[in-house]
Computed example of a mutant assay.
Amino acid sequence: MPRLALVTAIAAAALDDDLVPLLDACARAGIATQVRAWDDPSVAWSRFDAVLLRSPWDYTERLREFLDWCGRVSTRSQLLNPLPVIAWNTDKHYLAALAERGVPVVATRFVEPDMDPLPTLQAFLSAHPDAAEFVVKPAVGAGSRDAQRYSREQEFAAANHVARLLEADRSAMLQPYLASVDRDGETALLFFEGRFSHAIRKGPLLQRDEGPTEHLFAAEEITARIPGKDELALAENVLAAAAASLQLQSPLTYARVDLIRDDDGSPRLLELELCEPSLFFAHAAGSADRFAALLADTLRSSAPAI
């Protein structure tokens, strides 16, 4: 029976709503599955035929350590998704790479540690005169941690937020806050091995005059959603552009494409989640079993011949 490790973090294991349904589905698919924390030094990862990243949600504060761990694991087992994908996707500078390939990305200005935050922020606001509000967040981040929504009148507070990130040697991001999010939320489309599985609606996470969450991730309002044809088409284009950027030869085991609508109603890419996205099995009947069946096929096809 193939052996699979589902990777979490010691601080996150109890917070991952996908773990129990995935464990049950893997059992039905004939996979011996165990949940292990990436930061547990006692785990012998070579004992597993594959290691599937699920909720290592504290990696953003320990990125180099996490990527070093991914590198070690990839020499001992099959890491899903693979190391080059994880290294590329854990830093949101990938949005610039996708924009260069023609993907309609939410307008993003990166602020690097050697830049002056206030003039950079002022230049960003000048470039987006119609944006009543904007968002500051780190380029390496997850779960809306260290992300905050500001009005144009809060320029000085926002610049201080950027400065704090830069002083910690973290790149920052500036994006217009699209008003459609308050009405429509985000659409997250889930793909397993390149095939669309299901979608959910995520309610607005960043509230006015509310500071960044102090938890591993902000509380989310999730409901099932049928994506629009334009959203599905864009999500497929995003995955094709990512595959081209990464020179992938086969579809990714999992991917989540997070979209929001622009002021004119067109969908735009907010984030592409290829490292540790929630897969929202509870909101799509049969989705955990579909995913487990694909994992079983992957494990069988990669097993050494006897």
Rank of each mutant, 00 (worst) to 15 (best):
T75N: 00
A29V: 14
L52T: 06
P56K: 05
P41A: 10
P84V: 09
L22N: 06
L52Y: 00
V20E: 13
W57R: 13
L83I: 07
E65T: 14
Y59D: 00
P21H: 07
V43L: 08
G71M: 02
D68A: 14
A29G: 06
T60R: 11
D17M: 11
D24C: 06
L19C: 08
C26I: 06
E65M: 07
P41Q: 12
S77D: 07
D17A: 15
R54Y: 08
D68H: 09
T75R: 07
L79Y: 04
D24V: 10
T60C: 11
Q34R: 15
V51C: 14
L80N: 08
D16L: 06
G30T: 10
V51H: 09
A27D: 05
S77L: 08
V20K: 08
A44Y: 08
V20P: 03
D58I: 11
V51D: 11
I86L: 07
G71F: 02
R64F: 12
S55T: 08
V85N: 01
D39K: 04
L79V: 01
L80A: 07
R54G: 07
I31A: 04
L52H: 03
S46M: 12
L67W: 05
T75V: 08
V73W: 00
A32S: 15
C70I: 04
D18K: 02
A50Y: 09
G71V: 03
A50E: 08
G30P: 11
